[in-house]
Design a protein around this nucleic acid. Structure first.
Lengths: 334, 334
DNA sequence: TTGTATGCGTTATCAA
DNA sequence: TTGATAACGCATACAA
């Protein structure tokens, strides 16, 4: 790896001059400029980003802490953040926290140690206090999919509660009353907010929710399948289901099909997120469109602005999620 | 951000001693050790990874160049590589190339400038020559999903041709002869190898392939849907389809359903990759199981070993992809 | 057992 | 317009 010194020597100039032509910072005689560039080409010179960062005390990077890279929700999140990052001529560094407090913390520490100032963090398992500590230390850290009141202007989230309420209301309007809620088994904010939306809508309709209508499972396809089995066994009276996310809905529907039930004839189903999968299930899944791309865009822009010391006008950081009606909701059977 | 100097001052020792307790490199008197650790805690000291990397001329990082973070294939790839990385106590840095030569090159350059020696790179658009140049410069770079003969012991790939041949043979065994191939419109190796497999199997069965049985579309859901329309319009005689990947198969099936056709009664379909989606389509998609996780694991381990200067025994870098029969293949209609 | 001094590859401040 | 040179934060050979 050639260094700036090698280039300087070969071009017969000082390292300072080389630095100047690289950064285009001061006028350099066109002739020497050309000499330097030639030397760089010949040596296949490449700047060492670490040294640059060290010397200039700034790094051109946006850090992203995400959950599970293989989950479509996070895949979309990462992609959107990356687009913004690139638009601003920066590079993205992704680390994944795996829904595990220690790994989330390690990931955060890694990003810090890399010198990222701008960061978008999706943390499910770190508690508010810890996050608050990091937030104090990192003025350009923005939270996504989570709200901490003291960090409200640096939190970007979706109104989970209202969204699920609307789903349930839609089912009720279709004539359903026995509506189950298939949710996650993790103590994450998303879960409690969505569950709250479910309860609110049910209560508003004067429907009492027996305990077994709320089914807790890992938020994966497998979890959805397991939930399907429980549903069939434990609450045959149920005619409709709202799920924590589309992936669970996919598992649930696969299980129902397998057991000889039909969607939406026997069961109506509404998902959450509207990841691509939703449109390609059969029947096409009615679900809540989670504006992941918008949120991610916003979060990334916010982080970048904060990193540039721009003091932002109070922006709206709360997004609405609208119901997308496709083919999995019908009037209740029987 | 506190530095090693601040800690040294506070603990009343030299920076060297602080470095020693951090790295546990030389014996340090337990008492002073404790003093140093106390100072670090109090100052919330965090090592600057860039400085470490610069000073120790090594960095504890594995770089991954990937295609499109939002594609389930790459999502799984990234996840697997990350697992290996973490197992080895390193951190992963992901950059995405977006199936675009310039961005792939920028990504590669970024990883280099960050000082990653170990790298797993999935490049679709860079030509062999360029990749070869990088390979010469980077002894611990391993290619995934691509073969370059001169880099064979650092390439990890799947036998695309054989896998698709088997798919087609399976369809033929079921009685199909009018089999279309829905493939990508990009000039990538995957595509030509899989297409070759299709032609080989068809030729072996003495089936002549009219030009319009090969449909080129972007390898996305949308591409699959568009392919479905073309299929119905242009070649009504076709009774079975092999697709470039599951995502295209999903789009294709959605389109067929929409148009009133049934899978597998009217059309048999076989995908490629066996991403999670495949199991949750309806009917469940018969597809080729691409051992992405195994390949990724292997590639990451390889890269890490090479970075450690381990000269590996000639390992088998070619993986087999087996057909997984689920519910989308039946005897031809009529 | 601990401290001093030097270097890693750049940037940036002074001088010249 | 260009060249020395001192940082940047840390590791490490060499001394003590």
């Amino acid at each position: 790896m050639a260094t700036i010194k090698d280039v300087a020597k070969r071009a017969g100039v000082s390292t300072a001059t080389v630095s100047r032509v690289i950064n285009n910072s001061t006028y350099v005689e066109p002739v020497t400029q050309e000499r330097v560039q030639k030397a760089m080409r010949e040596l296949n010179y490449q700047r060492d980003a670490r040294a640059v960062a060290l010397a200039s005390r700034s790094n051109n990077t946006l850090g992203l802490l995400t959950g599970n890279l293989a989950d479509p929700f996070f895949a979309l999140l990462a992609k959107s953040v990356e687009q913004v990052t690139r638009k601003h001529g920066r590079q993205l560094v992704v680390v994944s926290g795996g829904h595990n407090a220690q790994r989330e913390q390690e990931g955060l520490n890694f990003l810090i140690s890399q010198g990222c100032e701008a960061m978008v963090v999706h943390s499910t398992m770190l508690d508010d206090r810890t996050l608050l500590r990091y937030g104090a230390q990192l003025p350009a850290m923005v939270l996504i999919n989570r709200t901490i009141p003291q960090l409200a202007n640096r939190s970007v989230w979706v109104d989970n509660c209202a969204a699920v309420s609307r789903s349930v209301e839609h089912l009720i309007a279709e004539g359903h009353r026995k509506i189950a809620c298939v949710t996650s088994d993790l103590p994450i904010a998303d879960r409690s907010e969505r569950l709250e939306g479910y309860y609110q809508a049910m209560t508003a309709a004067n429907i009492k929710v027996p305990q077994n209508w709320v089914i807790n499972q890992p938020f994966s396809e497998e979890g959805g399948e397991a939930a399907g089995k429980l549903l069939i066994q434990q609450c045959p009276e149920v005619t409709a289901v709202v799920t924590f996310n589309d992936v669970m809905a996919a598992g649930l529907m696969a299980c129902l099909h397998e057991q000889g039930y039909r969607v939406p004839d026997d069961y109506s189903v509404i998902g959450f997120d509207d990841v691509l999968l939703a449109r390609y299930l059969y029947p096409r899944l009615s679900t809540v469109h989670n504006p992941i791309d918008l949120m991610s865009h916003h979060a990334a822009e916010l982080a970048l602005q904060l990193a540039d010391g721009i003091n932002l006008a109070q922006s709206t950081n709360c997004f609405e999620a609208q119901l997308v009606c496709r083919q999995t909701v019908a009037a209740p059977r029987g």
